[in-house]
């Protein structure tokens, strides 16, 4: 059975530390709309892997610091 969990992110906080980058600015840097950045921040949309890498690059942080994944059950627990 698929261990479907939840994709989290720290984009909002990292934008703030990146000199107060706006959602529109980040969106323009990675080629998506401001609404899509809002949806990603709120966890309503999981971006493509390429966009995830672009966001991490724009925020100058590794992908694993920008995006996290909470597994539904701990890895190795019968998976």
């Amino acid at each position: 059975m698929v261990n479907r969990g939840r994709l989290g992110n720290s984009i909002r906080g990292l934008r703030a530390t990146a000199g107060g980058m706006t959602q529109a600015e980040l969106g323009a840097m990675v080629g998506v709309t401001r609404q899509t950045i809002i949806a990603i921040e709120q966890g309503k949309y999981s971006p493509s892997l390429e966009t995830a890498f672009l966001i991490a690059g724009a925020l100058k942080h590794p992908l694993t610091e920008v995006f996290t994944y909470e597994y539904a059950t701990p890895l190795g627990a019968g998976n």
């Binding site: 080629g31 998506v32 609404q35 899509t36 966009t51």
Partner: peptide, 8 residues
């Protein structure tokens, strides 16, 4: 210059 993106 801002059309539909991957989410759209």
């Amino acid at each position: 210059e801002d059309g539909p993106d991957e989410r759209d």
